[in-house]
Amino acid sequence: MNHETHSEILEDIMFLIYPLILVFGFYVILTGPRNPGGGFQGGAILVAVFMSRYLVFPISMESLNFLKKLDKIMLIALILVAVVYLFLGLHQTSDLFKIIYNTLMNVLIGIKVGSGLTVVFYTFIDIEGGEED
């Protein structure tokens, strides 16, 4: 694929669709505890942002290392939140904590899945990359 030339139509459409995908992804994540959806599905929708970016600009990402770190931080945060919630006995106190806990876990899972799948996708792209020239 040629690096210099990319379609202007695709580029314009991408900037129109970007915010829609983002809003839909966060909607699915945040309403996960009550509606169909949840962290995993919402995170997978957020990956579509980076994938559509690859379709328009077929280059590898510079911020991939940041996403790798984010992935690991989210994994640790997930375990910590669950441990703190259980061992402090917050699940016995009130319903408010349950709602906050559910939403927080969904957000963490969403960000982890989003960053993790993006790292997987771009690593897959980069393997045997640079064969164009």
Partner: peptide, 25 residues
């Protein structure tokens, strides 16, 4: 509906793009 959302996102978006990227290689 939960499984449907996952299938729609993964099956028809992510898997398709990954297959197309693989075909490019």
């Amino acid at each position: 509906p939960d499984a449907a959302l996952a299938e729609a996102v993964i099956g028809s978006t992510i898997a398709t793009i990954i297959y197309l990227a693989a075909l490019q290689k």
